[in-house]
Design a protein around this nucleic acid. Structure first.
Length: 466
RNA sequence: GUCCCGUUCAUCUAGAGGCCUAGGAUCCCAGCCUUUCACGCUGGUUACAGGGGUUCGACUCCCCUACGGGACGCCA
């Protein structure tokens, strides 16, 4: 059986992490079984769909690297097809026109609720004759007996009695088709074999299956993935902070780190935590997807992002880091080789934004020192130590790591103090207290000119504070 | 309210009746490493929602309760 999956967002906002995970699962499943992955835009709601949202979703998919084999397909371009199907249903008596006024529907709803029942349409127009010329909607004639059973790939068997279902509207009074109809027609027409979607659709599935049956079509397999919850246990939303995929880009996460985090949210392969894209494709399966909803945890995402920062190709990290330095007003071309800086700093940051922040001192003098670090480093004989090491550094024939290291140890020896007495003030003088690697590497990257300038600044500072 | 789905450490999860005095990861804490901060390493605290069954034996199977989520729209 060929596998054909799809991701079918409605363009009413950006691509959020829940949708991204669903897309990832669908994409992985198709890739895993050598199938096809389709992107379909469900834009039948004129009121809420926007082109801006379409672009945002496309942008998110591209950034994550979830490339689709077909699409984006737009439902608004397929209205003729939906009409054709609706006509067919009408002709065969499987759908009917309904002109129940809103007031009647509202009253019915209230009445049922008061009677502690589930609000459902009562089928009032089932046997009426409503003219096509008067305002009306079209409803699907749902079976009244029996039950719908389907075997969810993630949940297992799910059964719902037809008495729980009512006659759903498949065409609005303005003539446009509704979701439950379009999704069935499209999934059928596109040959979708596996419908992978959020579990908020579980309740729609039996209705859709009834539609498939009425149309005489094969029913695809269904897999309903659980929701992602915010840190407080409620459904993930804007008030939980970043939910848009592109916000993660802005905050300095690598797409592969987000993907890795997302794939492990609800899915696992033994104890493995880190998965390359190839490994995900090779190992992913719906059977191993959890049934329970999971909570989004930024701390773990941060850890993963740092892992990717540390183990990715430094040149690639440098490339991605560059714009974040730009945000700080820094042009990485004016200063040490960014790739070298990345290699030196990357295990010290959880995101590109943080990496940029802690690496700024390589490119420009800082305005202030980290208070705690400065207090500790610039006390006692620090001024003399700095003056002594400055002299040696200034006299170096070449600005090489080994020579720099030698100059520092020579100073230590000459002064007859511990290494820290020289190294500490020197480090803080040059970095401002920012996290930094080995001292000689740090100085080498900062460069002789800036190093001496910053030492002088501290010496001056200490002198004037006397 | 009705229906559907779910419930293992704070969080993500392993676990398909004996391998479990419940394993891994993140977080947190302690120690080691160390010229800062990290990384790394070592160790530690913490969980089978509750109650009934079934079974020689239940985290695993069944039922009930509680709690959580979802659906109930001329939204998707």
């Amino acid at each position: 059986m060929t596998v054909e999956t799809r991701f079918a967002p409605s363009p009413t906002g950006y691509l959020h992490v829940g949708g991204a995970r669903t897309a990832l699962f669908s994409w992985l499943y198709a890739r895993r079984y050598g199938g096809r992955f389709v992107l379909r835009i469900e834009d039948t709601d004129h009121e809420r769909s926007t082109e801006e949202s379409v672009n945002a979703i496309l942008e998110g998919m591209t950034w994550l690297g979830l490339e689709y084999d077909e699409g984006p397909l737009y439902q608004t371009r397929r209205f003729d097809r939906y009409d054709e199907v609706i006509e067919q249903l009408l002709e065969r008596g499987l759908a009917y026109r309904c002109n129940c006024p809103k007031e009647r529907l509202d009253a019915l709803r209230e009445q049922l609720l008061a009677a502690k029942q589930k609000p459902r349409y009562d089928g009032h127009c089932r046997d009426c004759t409503v003219s096509a010329d008067e305002p009306h909607v079209i409803r699907f004639r749902n079976p009244v007996d029996g039950e719908v059973v389907f075997d969810d790939l993630i949940r297992g068997p799910i059964r719902v009695a037809n008495t729980e279902l009512d006659d759903l509207i498949i065409r609005r009074s303005d003539g446009s088709p509704t979701y439950n109809l379009t999704v069935v027609v499209d999934d059928h027409d596109m040959g979708i074999s596996h419908v992978i979607r959020g579990d908020d659709h579980i309740n729609n599935t039996p209705r859709q299956i009834n539609l498939y049956r009425a149309l005489g079509w094969d029913v695809p397999r269904f897999a309903h993935v659980p929701m992602i919850l915010g840190e407080d246990g409620s459904r993930l939303s804007k008030r939980h902070g970043a939910v848009s995929v592109m916000q993660y880009k802005e905050q300095g996460y690598l797409p592969e780190a987000l993907l890795n985090y997302l794939v492990r949210l609800g899915w696992s392969h033994g104890d493995q935590e880190i998965f390359s894209l190839d490994e995900m494709i090779e190992l992913f399966d719906l059977e191993a997807v959890n049934r329970a909803p999971s909570t989004f945890n930024t701390a773990k995402l941060d850890w993963l992002n740092q892992q990717y920062l540390m183990h990715s190709e430094p040149a690639r990290v440098a490339h991605l880091l560059s714009p974040h330095l730009g945000d700080l007003g820094i042009d990485p071309a004016e200063g040490p080789d960014l790739v070298e800086v990345v290699k030196a700093q990357r295990e010290r940051a959880a995101s590109l934004v943080e990496l940029a922040r802690i690496s700024a001192f390589y490119y420009r003098d800082f305005d202030s020192y980290d208070e705690k670090a400065a207090k500790k480093a610039f006390k006692g004989e620090a001024g003399q130590a700095l003056a002594a090491v400055r002299e040696r550094l200034a006299a170096l024939a070449d600005w090489e790591r080994e020579l720099i290291h030698q100059a520092v140890s020579d100073t230590v020896e000459a002064l007859g103090v511990g290494f820290g007495k020289v190294a500490m003030p020197l480090r803080v003088a040059v970095t401002g207290g920012s996290p930094s690697p080995d001292l000689d590497l740090t100085l080498w990257l900062v460069g002789r000119e800036a190093t001496l300038r910053r030492i002088d600044r501290v010496i001056e500072h200490i002198r004037s504070n006397r």
